[in-house]
């Protein structure tokens, strides 16, 4: 896996997008900003509008009600940008993966956006955990910025 080298490597501004998560991931994200973990040393700054964002921190399984708002937010971010899908819910829907009220995680949203809006998904790092520890979030962010290399390889399971 080649190291990615985005223009925002040294100054990633993050925008926090909760799509129906339970809050646990969200407070761990905020925790990463506070003195103990202090991600500002990497130049990260929490911004209030998607217009300024470089990295979208997406939490939650994407509920039916919030779907359209999430789509519009993702379309409003100036390119290039990256997405961190934080928590089991964002990665694959979590415990609500097949509930009537959610669409079951970020991959499903990308699928839909690709068809409907001709949207090419940005580089995405998936960070599982319920909730992931702040260290895990920082590790994921470092991968998205190209500071660290990925340590796992993608493998597709095939039945023999």
């Amino acid at each position: 896996m080649a190291r990615i080298n985005p223009p925002f490597k040294k100054s990633p501004w993050i925008f926090h997008l909760n799509t129906g998560g339970c809050n646990a991931c969200d407070i761990e994200i905020l925790d990463a900003l506070t003195p103990y973990h202090d991600v500002e040393r990497f130049g990260m700054k929490l911004v209030g509008t998607p217009r300024h964002a470089d990295v979208i921190l997406l939490t939650g399984p994407i509920t039916r009600e919030s779907k359209i708002k999430v789509i519009r937010t993702l379309l409003a971010v100036p390119r290039p940008f990256a997405v961190l899908a934080i928590g089991s819910c964002a990665v694959g829907g979590g415990i609500w993966f097949d509930s009537y009220a959610t669409i079951g995680g970020l991959p499903n949203l990308y699928e839909e956006m690709r068809h409907k809006y001709n949207f090419e998904p940005p580089p995405t790092i998936y960070i599982p955990g319920c909730p992931p520890r702040p260290e895990a979030i920082i590790f994921g962010a470092a991968q998205a910025l190209g500071i660290l290399k990925k340590k796992v390889k993608r493998e597709v399971y095939k039945e023999d």
Partner: peptide, 19 residues
């Protein structure tokens, strides 16, 4: 906290120019 590097504001501006 530790805080960002001293040249952070220049880095921010450099990044914004490329976006």
């Amino acid at each position: 906290r530790i805080g960002p590097p001293l040249i952070q504001t220049w880095l921010d501006i450099a990044k914004l120019l490329r976006k």
